[in-house]
């Protein structure tokens, strides 16, 4: 990373940015369709969100405020590295506060706080093709999207029901965008799927290794696939967050000791901290009454 000072603003050269920007505009015009793009080598390994990083680098300007999360947290290695990268190559303002960010790059979560019209959510995507695990051949999956032939996907979900009595998929749960394309929402928990629907924010998806960009414009229908007799349902948690008392949020299990002690806390660390700053207290912090909202 020592030679980064020699690179262009936001690392990518202008020709690459133009190519990615054109792909983003097409992605917005064809919601849920995966636009091929010529992904570039980035100074970080695949799996570290090189697709999301390229999208962010292509849209980012000097007036933006960037937030980067990984599994809901701003302080994991992946999030810290990407945030530091953009501070270095773009000298951009950064934040951990969801409400202050104009661009939020994410791996595996959508913030709990409702996003607004002045925000762009950039997803890091490992496998953009929702049909890939059913059909390995790109020519075939492309044809299925072209013909809107999504029967195989429904068969797969229905096999889940036959085997488990319910749809067992909990991550990367497939959605239909604007009534046309079936799309992989990236490996977010299905808990987050409803947040994609009719969001005021623009949602952009970048897959570096697979060289695909796709988008969900603001105020667009995003419907999780399901069946009349087995409607889509999000995960529910028995107890509120042990730290801030929040209900109806996505919780992570935290092991407290080696005697089986554990607690469930918000996966969205900014959301949890903000609530605690506002005086909310969960079970672990003493005031259980706060949990009963």
């Amino acid at each position: 990373m020592t030679a980064l000072a020699d690179y262009n603003f936001a690392y990518l050269d202008e020709q690459t940015k133009r190519m990615i920007r054109r792909a983003i505009l097409k992605a917005i015009a064809i919601p849920g369709y995966q636009v091929p793009f010529a992904s570039r080598e980035m100074p970080m390994p695949y799996g570290w969100g090189t697709g999301g990083v390229q999208v962010t680098a292509s849209i980012l300007g000097p007036h933006d405020v960037l937030k980067v999360i990984d599994q809901g947290a701003d302080d994991t290695t992946n999030a810290v590295s990407i945030r530091a990268f953009f501070q270095k190559v773009a000298n951009v303002a950064v934040t951990t506060k969801t409400s202050e960010a104009t661009i939020i790059q994410t791996r595996h979560r959508i913030p709990e706080e409702t996003l607004g019209v002045n925000q762009v959510l950039v997803y890091q995507v490992p496998i953009p093709e929702p049909l890939r695990f059913l059909e390995p051949r790109e020519t075939e999956t492309r044809q299925m999207h072209a013909l809107e032939e999504y029967g195989l996907m429904h068969v797969k979900l229905y096999e889940d029901i036959a085997r488990h009595g319910r749809i067992a998929t909990t991550y990367a749960y497939p959605v239909k965008v604007a009534g046309r394309y079936v799309m992989d929402p990236s490996p977010t928990p299905k808990f987050d799927n409803p947040k994609m629907n009719q969001s005021a924010a623009l949602q952009l998806f970048g897959a570096g290794r697979e060289k695909r960009i796709y988008a969900v414009p603001p105020y667009t229908d995003v419907v999780s696939l399901d069946f009349e007799d087995h409607p889509f349902e999000v995960q529910t948690f028995e107890k509120p967050c042990a730290l801030c008392g929040a209900r109806h949020v996505y919780l992570d299990e935290v092991v407290l000791d080696d005697k089986g002690g554990r607690m469930f806390v918000c996966s969205d660390t900014d959301f949890c901290e903000t609530r605690r700053e506002e005086g909310h207290r969960g079970e672990m912090l003493g005031d259980i009454k706060e949990a009963a909202e």
């Binding site: 262009n8 603003f9 202008e14 940015k17 133009r18 920007r21 983003i24 505009l25 917005i28 015009a29 292509s58 849209i59 980012l60 300007g61 000097p62 623009l202 988008a215 414009p217 603001p218």
Partner: peptide, 16 residues
């Protein structure tokens, strides 16, 4: 660099 970025964001917002 910065003018192209600003114009792109205007185009992106216009189409989004």
């Amino acid at each position: 660099v910065f003018d192209a970025q600003a114009v792109f964001r205007a185009a992106m917002d216009a189409l989004a």
